[in-house]
């Protein structure tokens, strides 16, 4: 079978072109994301990193006039097949956004929002799930006594970890993160980086970041994008020490971008 996934790959894009109306934002992207690895997407502003990320769980469906050509295979299944339900895809491929976006609900209700609407879990199961997710997101100690209070009283870093917990509560296979620490202070950022390192044991993580050190610290593989094209995709170590492409080196050393 041509589309059969190997053990290590979980998502594979094949010759993806992406358009916002007539504007072509991505050109011929073919790349493989490996299971239980952290993959970083880097590149100058506007090169299409967020576009690619949102394309992987069909969040771009929400944009009027957006169009995808090519295939995105998730465990061997093309998620753009007309028969595939995007809602189901998003359950298995979760997403954390650049700005923390908790609902104006209690902390508990934020975390259990998804499971409550998509499963038949009862109250005690939900409570256990909330605790587990909060522990995974390293927010349990700070939040366990205020679960009933509004998520809006949390700090930005706490809110972002809450959003991670909320995504984890759906038990996805893949977690997409779009600059999850760009709105946070260094301490919160460090916490989330530690968290990502821990999470990759269970999840596959694809993260967009503008922070070179961050990409170097936390990722196993790195893809460098420039104006809608994938310029180089390699092991992170290689990208940051001895990249194959001159453009990559220029970007990483800060000579442009």
């Amino acid at each position: 079978m041509e589309n059969a996934p190997s053990d290590t790959e979980i998502i594979k894009t094949k010759n993806i072109d992406f358009y916002y109306g007539t504007f072509k934002a991505l050109t011929d992207i073919t790349m493989t994301f490996e299971k239980n690895k952290v993959t970083a997407l880097i590149g100058p502003s506007g090169c299409g990193k967020s576009t690619l990320l949102r394309l992987l769980n069909r969040m771009n469906d929400l944009i009027d006039g957006a169009r995808v050509e090519g295939e995105v295979l998730f465990e061997g299944m093309n998620i753009y097949d007309p028969e595939v339900d995007p809602v189901e895809i998003r359950r298995r491929i979760g997403m954390v956004f650049q700005k923390p976006n908790p609902f104006p609900k209690s902390i508990f209700n934020n975390i259990t929002y998804g499971p409550r609407l998509t499963s038949t879990a009862n109250k005690s199961a939900l409570e256990a799930l909330a605790e587990q997710s909060l522990k995974q997101a390293v927010l349990w100690e700070e939040a366990k006594d205020i679960l009933g209070r509004s998520a809006m009283i949390l700090s930005g870093g706490q809110q972002q970890r809450l959003c991670i917990a909320r995504a984890l509560a759906m038990k996805p296979d893949v977690l997409l993160m779009d600059e999850p620490t760009s709105a946070l202070d260094p301490i919160s950022t460090a916490k989330i980086e530690e968290l990502i390192d821990e999470l990759k044991k269970t999840y596959t993580i694809i993260i967009v970041t503008h922070n070179m050190q961050q990409a170097a610290r936390i990722s196993d593989k790195t893809g460098f994008f420039y104006i809608g094209k994938l310029i180089e995709y390699n092991a992170t170590e290689k990208i940051f020490t001895n990249p194959d492409v001159k453009q990559t080196e220029d970007y990483i050393t800060g000579r442009f971008g």
Partner: peptide
């Protein structure tokens, strides 16, 4: 977006 991204 937050809700839809959760598969709701």
């Amino acid at each position: 977006e937050a809700s839809l991204a959760l598969g709701v």
